[in-house]
Structures are given as structure tokens and as C-alpha cells.
Simulated scan of single mutants.
Amino acid sequence: MNCNPSAGSSSELEWFKSSYSDSSNGHDCLEVAACQDAIHIRDSKNPHGPQLHLQPAAWADFVAYAADQA
């Protein structure tokens, strides 16, 4: 797996969806691919569209915040 998006396509990343995704419409969620130096996020309905890349610490902060909101 290549974790440098500038060196290859996003299809080389191992993408996954949350276990909380609605199974009745599996395309209404985000997909995440984790690498050592970045977390890649994309819309499952548009896998070739724009992506968000976060530092692992920023992703951890977001996940902690989201968990507190549930």
C-alpha cells in the first residue's frame, strides 16, 4: 500500500467504512484510509472526488469530539 497520495492514486489505499454505517443505504457515509503520516477521508458516493487529509493527531481529536456528541 502506498500512503503518499502524490505518489499514486487513492485506489492504492485501504479504505473502510464505519461499522455504524446504515446498512439500508451503504453509500451514505464516509470512507477512511489510515496511514502512518495521514488519515485520508472521502465521500463513499464519490470515491474519485475530493479527499480530506488530516494529521493523525487532528483525526484523534475529531473522533474524541464526535464520541462526546453521541
Rank of each mutant, 00 (worst) to 15 (best):
M1S: 14
M1I: 11
M1Q: 10
N2E: 07
N2A: 08
C3T: 09
C3W: 04
N4W: 04
N4P: 02
N4R: 12
P5Q: 10
S6P: 03
S6W: 09
S6G: 08
S6N: 14
A7K: 14
A7T: 14
A7F: 11
G8K: 11
S9D: 11
S9C: 04
S10H: 06
S10V: 11
S11K: 14
S11D: 13
E12F: 09
L13P: 09
E14W: 06
E14N: 12
E14A: 11
W15M: 04
W15V: 06
W15T: 08
F16C: 06
F16E: 07
F16K: 14
F16V: 05
K17Y: 05
K17W: 00
S18D: 12
S19T: 14
S21A: 15
S21Y: 01
S21W: 08
D22T: 04
S23M: 07
S24V: 05
N25I: 01
N25L: 00
G26H: 07
H27A: 11
H27F: 04
H27M: 08
H27V: 08
D28C: 11
D28T: 11
C29A: 01
C29S: 07
L30G: 02
E31P: 13
V32L: 07
A33Y: 03
A34L: 13
C35M: 01
Q36M: 02
Q36R: 15
D37N: 15
D37F: 02
D37K: 12
D37E: 14
H40I: 03
I41A: 00
I41Q: 02
I41P: 01
R42Q: 05
D43S: 03
D43I: 06
S44A: 14
S44G: 03
S44K: 09
K45Q: 08
N46Q: 12
P47L: 02
Q51N: 08
L52R: 05
H53T: 04
H53K: 10
L54N: 06
L54F: 11
Q55S: 09
Q55R: 09
P56E: 09
P56K: 05
A57H: 14
A57Q: 14
A57S: 14
A58T: 12
A58H: 10
W59D: 09
D61E: 15
D61V: 07
F62Q: 09
F62C: 04
V63T: 14
V63I: 13
A64T: 13
Y65D: 01
Y65S: 13
A66D: 06
D68A: 15
Q69L: 15
Q69W: 03
Q69E: 12
